[in-house]
């Protein structure tokens, strides 16, 4: 069976694929969400849920920091992707 299919490679592709292919978009969504000013959510139901965490302080700076970290991580992952293309040649 192993000469037909490289199982090690397969599970690596699945796991790393999930981490990058699904994880990075999720991280992107986290970054976007962090950019939302507290209490300023469009969806009233969501706004209620968020408000409990301290809507009055409006930590825009913290949000921006989190967002910046998320986006930086994504850019780094993309750079790694390009590096892996070049490196594998």
């Amino acid at each position: 069976m192993n000469s037909w299919i490289n199982l090690t490679a397969l599970w690596k592709i699945v796991v790393i694929g999930l981490l990058m292919g699904a994880g990075l978009p999720a991280l992107f969504a986290v970054g976007l969400r962090a950019l939302v000013p507290r209490g300023g959510t469009a969806d009233p139901a969501q706004a209620g849920a968020e408000a409990g965490t301290g809507a009055t302080t409006s930590p825009a700076l913290l949000g921006k920091l989190i967002a910046a970290l998320c986006f930086a991580a994504i850019l780094a992952a993309m750079a790694w992707g390009i590096y892996s293309i070049v490196h594998n040649s």
Binding site: P25, A26, R33, L35, V36, T41, A42, D43
Partner: peptide, 12 residues
Amino acid sequence: GTFLVYRISRGV
């Protein structure tokens, strides 16, 4: 990924 993204970005 789509499931996660929609879930996380609900309040945006």
